[in-house]
């Protein structure tokens, strides 16, 4: 079967033509770099997304701390992950790249701060 997809790895947005057999990818054409083929395989066999959000700090200097997953997580975990993220509060100072939660929801990825937060709220 042939499927048309748009690669979302970069803003180029290559149009891919993907030949599939069942749930497997046989061949990919239309990509301008190797990301396209990897994306098509991943998207058909196990679609994943990097999740970004922001969490409360309780500090007036920086009210919300932006966070991301250290690697993409399965698409169906995105809404459960948001439910967890809404419960998180980070009142302590962190540096960019620090793990706010290690092994987030047992998914094998960390939830990272993507920005430095200021001093903790007294």
């Amino acid at each position: 079967m042939n499927r048309l997809m748009i690669c979302i790895e970069c803003p180029q947005g290559c149009r891919l033509s993907v030949e599939t057999g069942g749930s497997r990818v046989i061949s990919v054409t239309g990509q301008e770099c190797e990301c396209g083929e990897n994306y098509a395989r991943q998207e058909i066999e196990n679609p994943v997304r990097t999740l970004t959000a922001s969490v409360l700090t309780g500090s007036p200097a920086l009210k919300m701390l932006p966070v991301r997953t250290s690697a993409p997580i399965p698409k169906e975990k995105i809404f459960p992950a948001m439910e967890e993220i809404k419960k998180i509060k980070v009142p302590f100072p962190v540096e960019t790249g620090d793990a706010v939660v290690k092994n987030f929801m047992g998914l094998g990825v960390d939830l990272l701060a993507t920005r430095k937060s200021g001093r903790s709220f007294p």
Partner: peptide, 22 residues
């Protein structure tokens, strides 16, 4: 801009806006 998509050309990494600024 807390979403990813920054720095693909410059840093060859998919960064969020705050990470790119940092």
């Amino acid at each position: 801009c807390i979403h990813t998509g920054f720095g693909l050309h410059r840093f060859k990494a998919e960064l969020t806006g705050p990470e790119y600024a940092d």
